[in-house]
Design a binder for these strands. Structure first.
Lengths: 217, 217
DNA sequence: TTAAAATCCAAACAACGTTCGGAAAACAAA
DNA sequence: TTTGTTTTCCGAACGTTGTTTGGATTTTAA
């Protein structure tokens, strides 16, 4: 029972309508077509009216990005953990790429800007702790990778070293799938090739290399 | 002996001054601060005057991006080919990342938009051929990677399969270094960690995995 | 010397994000 | 119901953007 007053329900509905309109515009006409006036027109508002619900266009975009990260994480979490670790990590990585291919505009929106930081000042220590907690937030796609790598270590398939722990390996894995996804939706957008094979083989090579993990660089 | 007429020399000089001013603005105040009026002010022109030299702001940016690709390629080509293949490929990848870290604004400018296509229509065949030739252009950073992989194959260190040739392996390698670079200048911008170690270890794992290259996915 | 071409800019245009001031509506208290 | 207050909404405007236009000035060519 939310027990919301009617005015609050109206507010929430409009709030969501703005986001939905913004998503539609991005999906249909691209990010460049996203303007406050265009959003307003879709939901029969004036541009000025939107500022009752969002402080700025940037805030609308940030909200959409947060939801995008959740959708990305959901897609990756959908991979069955019953799979053997090798297939599990592979399919998780492929899910990351699949999201990018299916939602290139949102993906680029999410990953071409540095993440927004809270306005207040903070010490480097605090900042680092905040970033680390955001990285491992429950809605973070990275967390899925992180847990997957952790599982591989627990199962004894992936070796660890004092200077190369879960975090370091997971960041490497993230970089790999991110690069595959990013290049495919930008530079290789119109390029024709068997991306699926490249992705699988590249992921495989990285995985097998991880299982070795000798000592010297 | 260029044998340019004085007017042509003047034209070239202004042409270059515009690009230089644009580069400075991007470097000092970021991409968002780049405007036609800001460029004009730096070189004592009016905004309208710039259109004698560039058809649009987009054309200025494209030119800067092309030069950026050349600089990126030069940085990678600076790695000594006397190095053993393993170290050569590693340092080439690290050079790619180093460029991104030293020039994050330019790097993002170069790789967050799909490459500009010539306006004329063309068949899918022609388009594919054009993209492939651009990918392997002499000023393409990818070409350095491509040649490096090719060398590894020639030396018998990297195995090839009918369905996984130089191009496919090189695209995978590109994706890997691109992801490492991209994440570092965007999402992990303020994050503190031993990036150098992660990069070396990730590249190492991928390389070692490549040398195995079994048959099934 | 004269016609043509190249060079440059003030002014304006359309579109943008955002702010301001107030109108209209919804709500709360009496 | 009648107040007074708060919420909701918008027309108009501000400042900035990329770009176009028309004409002025200079350079070049004949």
């Amino acid at each position: 029972m939310p027990a919301l007053k009617p005015s609050e329900r109206r507010y929430q509905r409009t709030h969501e309508a703005i986001l939905e309109a913004a998503r539609q515009i991005i999906h249909e006409d691209g990010v460049n077509a996203l303007s406050m006036r265009a959003i307003a027109q879709r939901i029969d508002y004036s541009a000025a009216g939107l500022y009752e619900y969002f402080a700025s266009k940037e805030e609308i975009i940030e909200t959409i990005c947060r939801q995008g990260h959740r959708r990305l994480k959901d897609g990756m979490a959908r991979v069955s953990t019953d799979l053997p670790i090798r297939e599990y990590l592979r399919d998780t990585g492929l899910a990351y790429i699949e999201f990018a291919v299916q939602n290139p505009d949102f993906f680029l929106l999410m990953f071409t800007k540095a993440p927004p930081l809270p306005p207040g000042e903070m010490s480097p220590k605090e900042l680092q702790a905040l970033l680390e907690s955001e990285l491992l937030d429950e809605n973070s796609a990275f967390l899925v990778l992180f847990n997957g790598i952790q599982r591989g270590i627990n199962e004894g398939v992936l070796p660890v070293r004092p200077d190369l722990g879960v975090m370091e390996i997971a960041l490497g894995a993230w970089s790999l799938v991110h690069g595959l996804a990013m290049l495919r939706v930008t530079f290789l957008q119109s390029f024709q090739t068997d991306f699926a094979r490249i992705e699988r083989e590249t992921l495989r090579a990285f995985y097998e290399g991880l299982t070795l993990n000798r000592d010297r660089n």
